[in-house]
Computed example of a mutant assay.
Amino acid sequence: MKIIVRGAALALLTSVALPASAAECIAPANPGGGWDFTCRQIGRIMTELELVPNMVQVTNLAGAGGGVAYAQVVSKRSDDPELFVAASSATTTRLAQDAFAGATADQVRWVGSIGGDPGVIVVAKDSPIQGLNDLVEAVKADPGSVAFAGGSAVGGFDHLKVLMLLGDAGVEDMRKIKYIGMDGGADAITQTVGGFAQAMTGDMSEITGFIRSGDVRPIAVLSEERVAGFDDVPTAKEQGVDTVAMNWRGIYVPKDISDEDYQRWVDHLTAVGQSEQWQTVMAENGLEPYLVTGAEFQSFVDENIAEIQELSREIGLLK
């Protein structure tokens, strides 16, 4: 199977109010994951390009695989013109599977995608698993002995990547696959390094620091070709498993802001995506260019959700 889905606790700010003109980005996970990465990098570059008057405030609001943040934006901040929220394939996956308690994609406005983040499988540095085939054989021999940790909830995109990968590798009973859903990639890495999970499924951008520090060892990247800067990491395809999974990274904003404010965020994200700073970020973190904004991105989100629903039905996550 090949699928490219393009296409990582709020204090409620009651005691410390932000200046009226200060932009805020909500990362729907704990610090260290892909959504946190998206907020901090986009916010930093917006400030450097002087697109916003003050430093962008980053607020981590973990819970329900992004559902807590989504609900807060929809119910309490639907007309906040200075708020944007990090999103990815994990976001549309949860919406496609009706995992946000009835929330739908049309309750926010989708601004754009700024990059593609290849999926990756890593193990602890001292793991006896040396390559993807070792991992697959261990699962086939005893599915209960191998737990996968991921930065999205059960049924989320990190979980889907594991199911797609193992399905393509010949594993038949997906119900036996053990998956531990965490609130962000950093937490999933902790589970793997600590031995609570035998492998971690995530995206290249949220794992690069752990790879470079030697805490984990990548055994497969789920891209068509090896990722620049990580040329020693083989693709799953090279190892006989024809799986490609790409996570888009971008942002959405509250639904009830004005068209002018929405266009402002589209223009800001476009400027960031075209900047030299963002080209450097992509090169350093294994990202691929994928800049799609405005109406084109809205159409993409609709198609993305339909694709994920079809896949989820195929593997039994949706009826």
Rank of each mutant, 00 (worst) to 15 (best):
A103P: 04
V122N: 07
T92S: 08
G102N: 05
A105H: 13
A99R: 14
I121S: 01
R109Y: 10
F100S: 00
I121R: 02
T104K: 11
L95D: 03
G112W: 07
V111I: 15
D106M: 05
T104C: 01
V120L: 12
V123N: 09
S89K: 03
A90P: 03
G119E: 01
F100E: 00
G116R: 12
Q97N: 14
G102T: 03
Q97F: 09
Q97L: 15
G115R: 08
A99Q: 15
A96E: 01
I114E: 07
D106I: 02
A96G: 11
D117V: 06
V111N: 04
R109M: 08
D106W: 02
V123H: 08
T92M: 09
R109S: 11
I114T: 11
R109K: 15
G116F: 07
W110H: 15
Q107W: 06
G116A: 15
W110Y: 07
L95T: 05
T104M: 04
L95I: 13
A99D: 11
I121D: 00
V111G: 03
G116Y: 05
I114L: 12
W110S: 02
V120K: 04
R94I: 07
V108F: 06
V111F: 04
V120S: 01
F100D: 01
R94S: 14
D106V: 02
A105N: 10
G115W: 09
V111E: 04
A101W: 11
W110P: 05
I114V: 13
A103R: 14
A90R: 02
W110V: 06
A105R: 11
Q97R: 13
S113C: 12
P118G: 02
G115V: 11
V120P: 01
R94A: 14
Q97G: 12
I114M: 09
G115A: 15
